[in-house]
Write a protein that binds this DNA or RNA. Structure first.
Lengths: 232, 232
DNA sequence: GCGTCGTTTCGGCCGCCGCCGAAGCGTCCC
DNA sequence: GGGACGCTTCGGCGGCGGCCGAAACGACGC
C-alpha cells in the first residue's frame, strides 16, 4: 500500500497551515476583493501588532498566497492570483454551511446586493447578471471554461459594454456565491465584464467596503439588460 | 473600519488547522475517492501510530470533515460529504499548481486514464465523457447547477445507461480535474452516471487504487457513446 | 469465559509557533 | 540633516498540539 500521494499531502498541509491562524485568515479575507493593502493596515484589520503581522505576511508570501509590491516606504500586499481568491472563498463557503445566510443578515444588505469577489461581480447582481446571460444564450459551456457565444458578444456590444467581439477569447468560470448559493461569472471573462461596468460608470465602489453602489448611468444600463437594480 | 468578517475568519482558520497537519491531510486524501476505511488502515496510510491517528480522526469528525460509521469492532471513516471532497480537491489542485502533471507522470497512467473522484468519474475518461455530453447538447447550464437536457436524457437512455427520464432532476456540477486541468461532471448527476457505469459492467474498480479498469461490456458501450477507451 | 484484535484514553515529552516590545533599517518630507 | 513614519528583525515568553507507549475498553470467535 504505497500511499497514493507521497508529497501532495505535505503541500496540502502547508496550505492548511497558512490558513490555520485567525490573523492570517483575516488578512486573506481582507484581500479577497482583489485590493492591495499596506502592511500596517492589514495588521490593524487582523487585530495584531505590526511585528506579528509582518511575520504572517512573510509566511503568506513565501507560501505563494500573497504577492508583494513595494512602493516607497509602503509595502502593498495582494492575493497572488485569482486561484487563491477562489480557494479562500471555497473554504469560507464550506466553513459557513448552515448559518451562512443568518450570519450576514442585517447590516450587510448592500454587500449582499452587489459586491466584488476578487475582481468580478458577486452578490445578487452577480447572480442576476449570470442568469440574464444564460437566458439570452450568451454563454457556452466549453470543455475547460465558460465562454461568450457570438450572440452574447453581440448583446453586450449592443448594450454598450463590450467592444466588437471583445470577450470571445476570454475564459470564464462559474463561481458559487457564498451568500446567494448560486452561480455567477468569474474568470477572465467575469473580470472584464466587471471592469467595463466600472469604466462605463454603471457601478462604483463604496469606501471601506467590498459593496458596490449604482453609478450615474447604471440604472438605465442595467435596465436595458433586463435587470432592475431597485428590486435586487 | 469594522472588520468585514468578524467570525468567518475563525471558521476559516479552524478548517485550515484541520488540514494543517500532514497526517490529517493524508487521511483526507486517502478518503477522497469516497471510500470508507477503518481507523487502523488510515493510521498506516498516514504513517502514524494508531493512538495518534485516533486523535486526528476525532478532530476531523468534530470539525465536520469526516463522518463516522461504527460496525462491530471497526469504525469506518469517510468524508462527510461531497462538498468536503470538493474542498480538498480544490486545495490540492491549488497547491500543486506548476509541478502537477510532472508529479503524477510514470506509474500513475491508469490513474490518469480513469479514476473516481469522490463518487464520480475523473481522469481522461471523465473529461472525455463530459466533452461528448457537451457535443451532443446533453448538458444545460442552469442557474445553480448543470442539468441534463431532454436530448441528453434520451441519448443516455438509448445507450442503455439511464432509465426513462432518469437524471433530468439531478443537479450536476463541473469539477476541474487535477491531472487534466479540464472539466468533468460531478454532483448528483455525475455520481449517478458513474454508478450506472459500474452497474452495467462498463467499468470496475481496481484493487488498492482509485484507478478504474474496463469492464466486460465497457468497450462496446463507450464506443457507442463515441469514446475509444484504447485511445484515452 | 478467555484470548485476540481494533480502537480509544491517558500521561508525558518536546518542538513549533503566535504574540509582543524594543531596536534597527529604509523612505519620505521639510 | 533631522525627524517622523512604515515596516522588519530580534529576543523572549507562553501555550497549543503532535507524537508515542502503555493501559483500558469493547467486540468478536472459539
Amino acid at each position: 500500500m504505497t500511499s497514493a500521494a507521497p508529497t501532495s499531502r505535505h503541500r496540502l498541509a502547508e496550505i492548511g497551515a497558512l490558513l490555520a491562524e485567525p490573523a492570517r485568515a483575516g488578512i486573506l479575507l481582507a484581500l479577497i476583493d482583489g485590493s492591495a493593502r499596506p502592511a500596517g493596515e492589514l495588521a490593524a484589520l487582523a487585530g495584531v501588532a505590526p511585528a506579528t503581522a509582518s511575520a504572517h505576511l512573510q509566511r503568506l508570501v513565501a507560501g505563494g498566497l500573497l504577492a508583494l509590491h513595494a512602493q516607497g516606504r509602503h509595502r502593498y500586499f495582494r492575493l497572488a492570483g485569482e486561484d487563491v481568491a477562489h480557494l479562500v472563498e471555497t473554504l469560507a463557503l464550506a466553513g459557513a454551511h448552515a448559518p451562512a445566510a443568518a450570519a450576514v443578515s442585517p447590516a450587510d444588505t448592500p454587500l449582499r446586493r452587489a459586491r466584488t469577489c476578487y475582481r468580478h461581480l458577486a452578490g445578487r447582481l452577480g447572480v442576476a447578471l449570470f442568469e440574464r446571460l444564460r437566458e439570452r444564450d450568451a454563454l457556452e459551456l466549453g470543455s475547460d471554461a465558460i465562454r461568450l457565444s457570438a450572440a452574447g458578444a453581440r448583446w453586450l456590444h449592443d448594450a454598450g459594454l463590450f467592444d466588437d467581439d471583445e470577450g470571445l477569447a476570454l475564459a470564464g468560470r462559474s463561481c458559487v456565491d457564498w451568500t446567494e448559493r448560486r452561480f455567477h461569472l468569474a474568470g477572465a471573462l467575469g473580470n472584464r465584464l466587471a471592469e467595463r461596468l466600472f469604466e462605463r460608470g454603471w457601478l462604483r465602489p463604496r469606501r471601506d467596503s467590498r459593496a458596490l453602489a449604482l453609478g450615474a448611468r447604471g440604472d438605465a444600463g442595467l435596465r436595458a439588460l433586463g435587470i432592475d437594480w431597485t428590486r435586487l
